[in-house]
Design a binder for these strands. Structure first.
Lengths: 129, 129
DNA sequence: CGGTATCCCGGTGGATACTG
DNA sequence: CAGTATCCACCGGGATACCG
């Protein structure tokens, strides 16, 4: 995606685009986090990709990178004001997604029950088979 | 992205993931649209990709596909109740994006002015060059 | 009109190894 | 601890052509 944008959504998506971006956002929402700490909050992400995503978010003014000049190295990442605003704007989408998850689970459960009923019926008809 | 989701955002993004999905959502927000009509609203999209995105949105219960059995063929796409809810959940993100666009434009303008000032200064110092 | 079918390219992100 | 460096696989989507 690229400027010029067709609408605000494009501009927002451009910022949160990337497999881990919103997860990073959530991870930092509760306060400043160190690199390794953040990595631990995102099981499966590689260091390369985490660094990438953080750099991009930083370039977009969403996260702040604070380097402490000490040994061993220490770097802290935190949300900027804009990052917190973005996270807030994401809240309704989160709510919608949770509802969707609930619906999907309800469906899966209904299917499982239907299958169980079928198995029971078959067993009743052909118990020796 | 894939189930199980880490949070609601994941579930939502899973649905709107695809280069044109949200644009399709906006296009259908104002009412039912025919295939070609929708295509015209999304300059640059190919028929293959539009069909794909619509099918995926349909599978996720976001759009409804109504086929009219007539010649020439007519198919109408519209948002379902859930689709409208999703669109509503996207509104704050849209607002955030618009703000971002405004900021970017302000920056670009400031840069342009700075450059203009530089050019003016240089011209003033070396008017004959 | 409203699609499928094919082929192909570029970019994202995964795996692994190395470093200040 | 907090990163680079490198190489590579995958697949989303673009171009083009054809069909009921």
């Amino acid at each position: 995606m690229q400027r010029p944008y067709q609408c605000g959504i494009d501009a927002a998506i451009d910022v949160i685009d990337g497999k881990w971006k919103v997860l990073v956002l959530w991870a930092l929402d509760s306060g400043a986090r160190r690199f390794g700490e953040t990595k631990r909050l995102l099981p499966g992400i590689s260091e390369k990709v985490l660094a990438q995503q953080l750099r991009e978010l930083e370039a977009d003014g969403i996260v702040h990178r604070e380097v402490y000049d000490q040994v061993p190295p220490k770097v802290e990442y935190s949300l900027t004001e804009r990052g917190r605003a973005l996270n807030a704007a994401l809240a309704p989408l989160n709510a919608w997604g949770k509802e969707r998850i609930a619906l999907l689970e309800a469906e899966a459960e209904a299917e499982a029950e239907a299958e169980a009923a079928t198995v029971a019926a078959v067993t009743a008809v052909a118990p020796a088979a």
